[in-house]
Design a protein around this nucleic acid. Structure first.
Lengths: 342, 342
DNA sequence: TTGAAAGCGCTAACAT
DNA sequence: ATGTTAGCGCTTTCAA
């Protein structure tokens, strides 16, 4: 019942534990005949090395900690997929934690990671974890931020330019003749949100006769979008925006639903554009225009960057990898749909 | 740079390591004055216990392994969310692995788990892992299956009745006047798929003058649905089914797209029903009727069941928890939409 | 109530 | 090329 150890293998093969260890880790320097005997014993006994013991001895866990805001948002799910794949390809395991369940305590997920002595941490969560991450870094556990930046440049990050994204979205709405824009997103404390708004504002200022209203929210869920959509639908027409830039697609999808149910036509009465280009944006009731972020690639790249830091600690230089977001125009923004992308 | 250990804490507090251990794990039996000194030393030094060492000593890792087929499918993402939450609430960490990237080698994810000596394993993946899971069980690592059953009853499982689900779907289509049904799903080797078809067949047999065609597929992606939809659209009308039961929502969503692009009206010409009721089904171009599985609850329940087995190994009795799936009728099946659910 | 000591399974010097 | 040995950080008897 208790697991097979190297000692058992050594005994059966008639060799020492260190030889077994060598066969497992550096088979080169072992006589082929012995190696064969050991391998035989390993399969016969079904030996599986104990990572905890190995980790205790080597000081490395070959494990990465990943904190995501919310797995049920396809944007984060895609990031997690990318991370997991890249990590697995490099021989790392992934310890997963979700931060949305503990508002205000997002950094708690890091405690878990530190106890497990993960080799590094990946954070895709809006919560403010920088202080705690600093602490981890001082203790030898580096981190890479996904979808956010570290202003002080202490951490590497992988993100898509949110100012550009906001500008793309707003410019697109304006080019389609919209003049009364509404930005819906939040929380305000989250820099991505402020950046998207900033880009949006730039585009508005660059145009003439275009107004921008802002509605800050605490979350970005489809449910919230639904209720905001209903609220907008209830407004008299002249108090209603003719275009809404929603800070993510979940919110945008809900908005469309709320508006349509309230008798408002999308895009005729109100144009909508979202953010992230989740896979379902294309299949939505009114196919949703969106600003695409290469979420899965971002996850892969973040894991690769972290692993690179791990492998070359000497030449550690935080680097900010920035992807450029791109506009995906579909029906919801009133543009002629491009060759439609599923 | 090297992490703070209990020895360091002990030294600073002027006590022995075992006292530190006691303070951390069983503070009751320690004199308050000493305990205070130790706690003080802990915060001062920023001590964080090393799980690997603890695990090596106790033989328990307080970690659960979770294998999911594909995180980018909201059904699995919801399961993962449920698992993660329930595990965290009970003090367990979650080691995550994705199996879709290694077709034919799904069980490889279990190697990882065994090396890490996870306390238990949760499997939400179609791949055939039963043999390897048996091995793990013999080595003291129990498993719980999610969304699949163990015919031999060796493992606990949490699933929704797929026969019932298939019956609900087909009956619904038939009740709406459809007579030429097509089932699309697969792979055939996956029992969930066979069960859904079985339920479907039952409903067809119970009706008169209804035919059922079957199309087996290797995967269930939106892309595949799109191409099948196009193919159906290209058929002459009399060779085309008037209703399609797709084995999951991703596939169904793609199907709708393919059909609509090909000039086929949904649901007028072809009714569609999917499976899983992912959150985006409601927001689809044609709101998608679906058979709902309580995915998140299933994840929670599975984790709870596994943890229960872990805590009461003596009274281990595999149990099959079965949720009943429910029909969610929306526009795609030609029914009058129920009070619409987002 | 507190401490001393053994040992979990492994790796890495070091000795042979 | 192989074996001997120490020790990673913790928990847990056992003794004081």
């Amino acid at each position: 019942m208790t697991a097979v150890s190297m000692r058992d293998v050594a005994r059966l093969a008639g060799v020492s534990v260190s030889t077994v260890s060598n066969v497992v880790n550096r088979p080169d320097g072992v006589a082929t005949e012995l190696a064969a005997r050991v391998t035989e014993a390993i399969t016969q006994l079904g030996f599986v090395r104990n990572e905890a013991a190995r980790q205790l001895r080597t000081g490395r866990s070959e494990t990465l900690g990943l904190t995501v805001l919310d797995l049920s948002n396809p944007f984060f799910a895609a990031i997690a997929t990318g991370v997991e794949q890249a990590a697995a390809a490099a021989g790392y395991s992934v310890l997963l934690a979700t931060s949305s369940s503990i508002p205000g305590h997002e950094a708690d997920t890091l405690d878990l990671f530190e106890r497990h002595r993960v080799d590094g941490v990946l954070v895709a969560s809006a919560g403010n974890m920088l202080e705690r991450l600093d602490q981890l870094r001082q203790r030898g556990i580096p981190a890479v931020l996904i979808d956010s930046l570290d202003d002080r440049g202490a951490f590497s990050s992988v993100s898509a330019n949110n100012v550009t994204g906001g500008r793309l979205a707003a410019r697109h709405l304006i080019e389609n003749g919209r003049t009364r824009l509404l930005f819906v997103g939040g929380p305000r404390a989250v820099s991505q949100m402020r950046d998207r708004l900033e880009g949006c504002q730039e585009a508005v200022l660059a145009a003439r006769g275009v107004t921008l209203d802002v509605k800050w929210t605490q979350t970005l869920s489809a449910e919230l979008g639904l209720s905001i959509g209903s609220e907008l639908a209830d407004r008299p027409v002249h108090e209603r925006p003719d275009a809404v830039f929603a800070a993510n697609d979940m919110l945008a999808l809900g908005l469309i639903q709320g508006l349509v149910r309230g008798g408002v036509r999308v895009p005729e009465d109100v144009a909508i554009i979202g953010y992230d280009d989740i896979v379902f944006a294309a299949a939505a009731g009114v196919p949703l225009s969106s600003v695409r972020q290469p979420s899965r690639a971002m996850g892969e790249r973040a894991a690769a960057t972290l692993i690179d830091h791990l492998r070359h600690p000497a030449e550690y230089r935080p680097r900010a990898v920035t992807f450029e977001p791109s506009l995906v125009a579909r029906a919801s923004s009133g543009a002629r749909p491009a060759a439609s992308v599923l």
